[in-house]
Design a protein around this nucleic acid. Sequence first.
DNA 1: TAGATTGTTAATCGATTAACAATC
DNA 2: TAGATTGTTAATCGATTAACAATC
Lengths: 217, 217
Amino acid sequence: MVRMRTRKNDMNTNKVSKTLLKRLPVYLNYIKTLPEHTESISATKIAKALDLGDVLVRKDLAKVSDGGRRKLGYVREDLIRDIEEFLDVNRTACAVIVGAGKLGQALLDYDGFEKSGLQILAGFDICPGGPRTGGGKPIFPMSRLEAYCRANDVTIGIITVPAEHAQKVCDQLVACDVEAIWNFSPVHLSVPEHVVIQSENLAVSLTALRMQMKNRG
Amino acid sequence: MVRMRTRKNDMNTNKVSKTLLKRLPVYLNYIKTLPEHTESISATKIAKALDLGDVLVRKDLAKVSDGGRRKLGYVREDLIRDIEEFLDVNRTACAVIVGAGKLGQALLDYDGFEKSGLQILAGFDICPGGPRTGGGKPIFPMSRLEAYCRANDVTIGIITVPAEHAQKVCDQLVACDVEAIWNFSPVHLSVPEHVVIQSENLAVSLTALRMQMKNRG
DNA sequence: TAGATTGTTAATCGATTAACAATC
DNA sequence: TAGATTGTTAATCGATTAACAATC
């Protein structure tokens, strides 16, 4: 009798905590960078390598995989598969970047997002400048944004314009029916409730870093 | 009798939570972008504008300022001063960037960090390429890293090299006696205990974003 | 067996929210 | 006064850690 691979009941029903979601890609990356011949890996070892508590890692892994075997740990490639499945990295979302300055171009050219399930199709800017960036992706004028998004199933808008234009650009992207905004400008953006927003505010990170230094030194 | 401006007792003794540190720069930025003529501002209004709970903002502000007046809220410029003082933005830390690719250059040219107390002096790379970037800051070969860091009081090392070189570069920066590492490469870095580390892992953010989309749609 | 590991339940810790008092 | 606000104490929520049982 063929038995379907069963998943833990709570795997999909339980809400996943945001902190777990942030750790899973880190685990995944670490496990993937282990030497090829590594057969198995334990939560304890991952915890030590990543400076985390072992119980924490054990619980995290239990939430996304039932491949854990007492005394043995996890089979490496099974664990990779389970995490990837959980994170749904194979379902690719399409994105555009608005703002083709240095940062925008850096993101446009970076090919590392594809293994996290993101394909950045094109950039948009008020003055499109050179027709293509080094990485070979096109940069279009803003006037073509909406048509492009609708024609190419763009679900994520990435904002890399200066702070003063960010909200306006955000509104334009929302009008293109993107489902999510990934914001790299240092301002809080207002979006309708159905739109997901994630802000990378480097000034915030920097301040956190500096305060930690202050508390140590 | 001249009375010194007194601060709440718990302001320096109490440990500040990490979450507070992440919100303060956001508050500060919001308050600063209010119309010039704005005299006063309340926690309630800030909360509404930034989609946060009002009690949360109220408690946060109380931790960094004692300028709150019942019924009136805070005097805008006093609050700005108190937050800036708390975050110590006027004490500037010097940094270098290792890795002068597009991302490294974007950060090197970005002038927004200075108002958060960071001065990025120079970039370093294995092949220094053109002598200067658009923003006018120098890019040196790696061989000059240590001498430069020691000569210029560099306390923060920013890493924007590909993942496979990140740990090596990190070790080099630690050997230059930097106090903190700001890591933009998507790997976990090991540092001695006395070194502060902050990683901006975009793959992690991206995954969090995609999972939120999945849970909504 | 003994030891390394997972898994589970309870305890702790930290952060947020709720309720309400104070007050200008 | 009434209303908008801060401030404080208790309750709740969520995440992590501790303790220990299970097991291959």
